[in-house]
Design a protein around this nucleic acid. Structure first.
Lengths: 244, 244
DNA sequence: ATAATACATTTGTATATACATACTAACAAA
DNA sequence: TTTGTTAGTATGTATATACAAATGTATTAT
């Protein structure tokens, strides 16, 4: 594995180092809780200072990918299951492809609508101003398992003409410079009403995992208001949290 | 507010500083997204170096309590709602009391049982070895809204004679030195079967938020295996996640 | 053999320093 | 009024250095 840091790059060294380490510890050599080279060595290999290297390692420790012990070393956390990385922000498609699930889009509607009070106040806009509504029915090849309703702030620059089959946030980032940064979610359960039952091809009254998601950009400005209705037996939401 | 750091203490300076800042930003003066003093000043006030101070601030930023901006300053994150602190590990009673909800215990059974294969393998013990099972039906004064089944690793030292009305993890920490560190959770939805419906005083088939929780100590050793069945309309699970 | 000791290794803590970069505000020029 | 420039301020990046504390290993004494 090549470990090369570009000192002339605009990207900060500790970010580059973090990326390299992330790739390194996800490579097959480090699956089993192996020790990393010690900090002095690593800093020499990467040709950055120990202080800078520690910045990178700190982040990975905080993210739960590494653990350190005085007098011993830094090792890769074992059981790197999916949930162990759940701290990182992920879009629906990323989540699914990380699990190796192919996605099929069953329905996709885009429209400009007048938002209701709830949505308008979330975006901090007047009720008369239109927002982009995106409806998606997605799932596996065998059948749909989630119905999404998304609303986007007018300022994100979507026209409604984009290719909504591609990962949305990658596109937003590249085309409009919008970086989704924070996601607040509320998860609850409810019964399928007639509408949802029909969409998800499930009986009326079937249990549904309901997920409200509020997405903000780097300046805490609202970007997206998202409602997701998941077929209960097809989706498990995993979270990992850590003290301190 | 007193901001005093003890340079002779055994506690690392950056930890002391972090604690002080945590208290500071939770005080009434800082509720509204106010700017902190700048790093140079703060480091002078606390009589620690800027580098050390930055260690403390970094953690708080990572925890979502502060945000920093080049050329502007460091400010307390607004809307310090419950969910903004959801990264911190919380027990059920802590969660509820943080929301100002009084808890009532409707049922409480403690027993030593032979675990099934799933639980035994989670704890890494033989199926012949008994574990402590704790069943709790809890809720508001008006009625129960969650049914818990917990299993504890034999080595945590519980006898079954403890006072299970007190916060469990506080007790474990004080009495047995067990520090719960990591919690992995899986959240899904299901229909109430006859048993759950009766416990939660809800119709059979009603939607239930089902929460599996795996708790580990500081050494990643399993402590608790917990199943929680929440009445759908009474509980919302909130998560906040942040990129980078 | 076992226990105590000493040593080397590795991360943890703490500081000082220098310069880069993003933002604000004030002022000047068009 | 608007635009551009500049100075000041605050965080961001990066390094070098020194010592502390925990751990594991090898050595020595019993």
């Amino acid at each position: 594995m090549k470990l090369k840091i570009d000192h002339k790059s605009q990207v900060p060294l500790h970010i580059q180092a973090e990326e390299l380490l992330r790739r390194l510890i996800e490579s097959p050599e480090y699956t089993d809780g192996k020790l990393l080279p010690n900090e002095m060595e690593l800093s020499k290999i990467l040709s950055i200072s120990r202080s800078t290297l520690r910045q990178s390692i700190n982040k990975l420790v905080y993210d739960g990918l590494l653990t350190r012990k005085k007098g011993v070393g830094t090792k890769v956390v074992e059981s790197k299951s999916l949930s162990s990385k759940s701290k990182n922000w992920m879009s629906f498609s990323q989540e699914m492809s990380a699990r190796g699930i192919p996605i099929k889009n069953f329905e996709l509607h885009v429209s400009w609508i007048l938002p209701d009070k709830r949505i308008a106040s979330f975006f901090g806009i007047k009720e008369g101003k239109k927002v982009l509504k995106l409806v998606r029915l997605r799932g596996r090849p065998e059948g749909p398992f989630v119905y999404f309703e998304s609303y986007f702030h007018p300022l994100v620059g979507l026209t409604g003409e984009e290719d909504y089959k591609a990962p949305l946030y990658e596109m937003l980032e590249k085309a409009h410079g919008i970086i989704a940064m924070v996601s607040k979610e509320e998860i609850s359960a409810l019964s399928a009403d007639e509408f949802i039952a029909e969409k998800l091809e499930t009986p009326i009254g079937a249990p549904i995992l309901f997920r409200k998601r509020f997405v903000f950009d780097i300046n805490e400005k609202p970007i997206e208001y998202n409602l997701g209705y998941y077929k209960a037996d097809s989706f498990v939401y995993t979270v990992e949290s850590r003290r301190e």
